[in-house]
Amino acid sequence: MDLEARNLSSSAWERPVLHFSRGLPGLERYRWFEVTPVPENHFFLMLQSREEEAVGMFLLDPFPFFPGYRCQLSTSDREDLELDDHQSPLIYTTVSIWNEEMFTNLAAPIGINVARRKGKQVYLPEYSKQLRVSLAEVLATAAGPKIAEPL
C-alpha cells in the first residue's frame, strides 16, 4: 500500500459514520451515513450513504442564516439521539437545489449526536410551513439574514 492510499483510508476512518436508526423519510433503506465537511465552505456538510453511493445530500448549518431558528427536540427525539440531559445535538438542515436556487427544510432538520454517532431527522411542528425555504434572499443580503419566525 502506498502512503497516499494509507492516508486516505485512515482519514476515511476518522470521518464520523452516523447511524440513523429510523432511517430518513424516502430513504429508509439506508441507515448508515458518513458526514464530511465541504472543503473551504464550512456552512455545508455532505451527508453520504455508506450503503449506496448515489444517495447523498448537502446539509446546511441553518443558524447563521436564520438567527431566529430554534430547535426544541421532543423527548423521544432526544432518546433516539441518545443525548444526555443537558446535551445539545448538532443541527443541520437538508439542502435541495432547483434551477440554481437553493432551498432548505427548516421543518425537518437533522439532529446529530457526534459522541454517540447517532443521527435523526426530527420534525418541528412550529416550522411546518417552512419545509422549503429559499436561500436566495438570505444569500443575497449578507448583512441582514432573514429571521425564521415560527408560524
Binding site: V38, F58, T94, I97, W98, F103, L131
Partner: peptide, 22 residues
C-alpha cells in the same frame, strides 16, 4: 412532505465546488 424534500435533496446534489461560497 419530508420524503419529497429528502428526495429532492438527493436528486439535486451537485459537485461541492458548485455550491455558493457563502
Amino acid at each position: 412532505a419530508i420524503r419529497e424534500e429528502n428526495l429532492r435533496a438527493v436528486g439535486s446534489r451537485k459537485n461541492p465546488q458548485q455550491l455558493p461560497k457563502l
